[in-house]
Simulated scan of single mutants.
Amino acid sequence: MPQGQATLPAQAYDWVIPRGWRHEDGTVSDGATPRRYNRSGAFEIIVTTSGDTGGTISVRAIDTTCDPNATRTTLATREETRQLPTVCIGSNGAPATIFCGDQTDYGFRADVSGSQPGGRITGYAWSVLGAGWNLTNASAATPTIIPSGTSGATITLVASYERNGFSATLRAPDAVLSYSQQLPTPVFVGSNFDLCLNQRRRYEVRPIRGSVSYRWTATPASLIPGGSATTTVPYLDVTGPNTDATASGQVRVEVSNAAFGCASNSATVNFQIGAGSAILRSSANYYGAVCPYAPVVFEVERANARGQDNYAWYVNG
């Protein structure tokens, strides 16, 4: 500090506190007008918050020795915030896209986080903007929302929150569900679709929501059933042929919903029939003759083998 100057204690402080907060004498602040505390110890004060709003707190030290406004310090400020809970729209697996014919109750719910001690949600207000969608129990934490099956929708949620006599409105981010006129692509369950001779195997896809029919086409014709079949369940039991005349097969499924006029969709799996082929070869085939007491090498040549082979050898003569 330059010579000849001295640090003097402040005789007063001008405080500005957020709107709605109360000064030490009970005066309610307007959030802008400074409140003068005429004491040297007023570098700290005790105020009463409103419980709802935060805002800017500012203070300036005042030297009132000669002139009440002669000397002012630089304004010091800080921001005080009030944390509110957050509310979001949750569900039991609701997709981002609602497919044609889907009228599933996905169990939409209000998910609240960050509530402070003494705080509580006092009410909910749900709304659905979507042609034909059905909303019931709109003031509950878990409403019932049924899609129309013919359109997407925007779901909104507003919650009322109370704490220590303060109330606030909490708005959740909207849940925007798009719409597809085409049914989803069927997905086959499992990874091994190969079929042994006379084996019975179930070819199954994940269920498609809505009143869906499944049209199956199985080839070759030696499969049972071979050709086309229609079911209301998402699977078809197929039995392999009794010969391996055809080494491969295919099952195709097409899903449709005639009641809603949905565009169909399909999926296909290809598979092997039987255990593959086996060719017996020997050194005698190469040389054309076998000498007495000479060794002969026999070998099985496999193609399209499945799993682990076991061999049983028989020699006659």
Rank of each mutant, 00 (worst) to 15 (best):
P2I: 09
Q3S: 11
Q5T: 12
P9T: 12
P9M: 07
Y13M: 05
P18F: 03
P18L: 09
P18I: 11
G26A: 14
V28K: 15
D30Y: 08
T33E: 01
T33P: 04
R35G: 06
R39C: 09
S40W: 04
I46E: 10
V47G: 06
T49R: 15
G54N: 09
G55E: 05
I57N: 08
S58I: 12
D63V: 07
T64G: 03
C66E: 13
D67G: 04
D67A: 07
T71E: 10
T73L: 06
T74C: 03
R78G: 08
E80N: 08
L84G: 05
V87A: 06
C88N: 12
G90D: 08
A96E: 15
D102K: 01
T104F: 00
T104G: 02
R109P: 01
A110C: 10
A110H: 04
G118L: 04
G119C: 09
R120K: 09
I121Q: 05
W126T: 04
A131Y: 01
G132I: 00
W133R: 00
N137T: 11
A140Y: 00
T144W: 00
T144A: 01
T150D: 05
T150L: 12
S151R: 00
G152D: 02
T154C: 08
T154A: 11
I155S: 01
I155K: 01
V158G: 10
V158S: 13
Y161K: 11
Y161E: 13
A168R: 15
A168Q: 12
T169K: 13
L170Q: 07
A175S: 15
L177T: 00
S178V: 00
S180C: 07
Q181V: 08
P186Q: 02
F188A: 03
L195G: 11
L195C: 14
C196V: 07
Q199T: 07
V205G: 00
R206W: 07
S211Y: 06
A218M: 14
P225Y: 02
T232H: 14
T232E: 07
P234H: 02
L236W: 02
P241N: 05
N242R: 13
D244V: 04
D244K: 11
T246R: 11
T246S: 12
R252D: 11
S256I: 05
F260Y: 10
G261V: 07
S264I: 05
S266H: 11
A267M: 00
A267Y: 01
A267C: 01
V269T: 14
V269D: 00
A275V: 10
G276D: 09
A278I: 10
R281S: 15
S282T: 15
S283Q: 11
N285E: 13
Y286G: 02
Y287F: 14
V290H: 14
P292H: 14
P295T: 08
V296L: 10
V300S: 02
E301M: 12
A303M: 12
G307L: 12
Y311A: 12
A312W: 15
W313D: 01
Y314L: 12
Y314H: 10
N316W: 08
N316P: 05
